[in-house]
């Protein structure tokens, strides 16, 4: 039909964005005609203007940095512990018997339900937020590492043993790469939990960060800044997901889905 490949590509890229752009246009029209009160929702132009103003005076960057730092630190702590325990319980039977029941029990408590207790323990300092994020990240990493190790093809393990691989070499060449696809699924889930937990934790008590930005704006009825904060979370979540996909492409090059062409 259409002979021009460039035009076809352009159409393919443009189509998914048509609906959001249309909605944005309607929203802008409704807001500027006064049909929606600015106390309910700001106009897109107002959100953009608020974003520009915050960007210009540097506060946006400051809050973004504070949130990202918490996210990364919490992810490293919770993910690290989850990875370690997942590997241990997946590889060592006795360890599973000792820990798995406890982990499964704690897992069924929604970690955000611990907020009152966490505030009692840590106050409203950094510690509380890091603890919550780490806890949210821990379970998806632990569970997927554990199941990844358990799910390694036993015939490959037998082959490795009969080819003289023992202990560390067996782990490095067979167990870990075999568990990696599942582990990376865990990373993607964990990234979702990481942002969710951080939003809640920052909304409750913080002196900086995007959640603080949003709560502070609410007190001054600045709906434009509130919407901006929500958009920022969406953007950060999308970035984290892209990162996880990139990680899969780098770490699992042997998977047909990740082939270069």
């Amino acid at each position: 039909m259409s002979a021009n490949p460039v035009r076809t590509l352009l159409a393919e890229r443009a189509v998914p964005w048509m609906l959001p752009l249309l909605l944005l246009g309607c929203w802008q029209m409704a807001a500027s005609s006064g049909w929606i009160s600015t106390r309910v929702a700001p106009s897109p132009a107002a959100v953009a203007a608020a974003g520009w103003a915050l960007l210009a005076d540097g506060t946006l960057f400051q809050h973004l940095l504070a949130s990202s730092r918490r996210a990364v630190a919490g992810f490293l702590i919770g993910g690290g512990i989850g990875l370690l325990l997942g590997l241990l319980c997946g590889g060592v039977r006795g360890c599973e018997r000792l820990l798995d029941t406890s982990v499964q029990m704690i897992r069924n408590v929604p970690h955000l339900a611990l907020i009152p207790l966490v505030i009692l323990w840590f106050g409203i300092d950094e510690g509380a937020k890091l603890f919550l994020v780490a806890l949210g990240v821990f379970f998806p990493i632990y569970l997927n590492t554990f199941h990844g190790i358990r799910g390694v093809d036993p015939t490959l393990v037998e082959m490795g043993r009969s080819y003289g691989l023992r202990g560390w070499t067996l782990f490095r060449h067979v167990m870990l790469p075999g568990a990696l696809p599942s582990l990376l699924v865990g990373v993607r889930f964990a990234l979702g939990w990481m942002w969710l937990t951080l939003i809640v934790a920052e909304t409750i008590a913080a002196n900086d960060g995007i959640g603080y930005l949003a709560m502070n704006a609410r007190e001054f009825m600045r709906t434009d800044v509130v919407v901006l904060a929500i958009l920022l979370y969406a953007l950060l979540g999308k970035l984290a997901d892209l990162g996880a996909r990139g990680l899969e492409r780098i770490l699992l090059p042997w998977r047909p889905a990740n082939a270069p062409h």
Binding site: T155, G160, S162, Y163, H173, V174, P177, L252, W254
Partner: peptide, 23 residues
């Protein structure tokens, strides 16, 4: 002693040469 299985049991995450070099 080396054993060859009914299925090749190559490690999918290692290139052919690294599979052969295993161990």
């Amino acid at each position: 002693i080396r054993l060859m299985f009914q299925d090749a049991r190559l490690l999918p995450w290692k290139r052919v040469a690294d599979n052969v070099a295993l161990g």
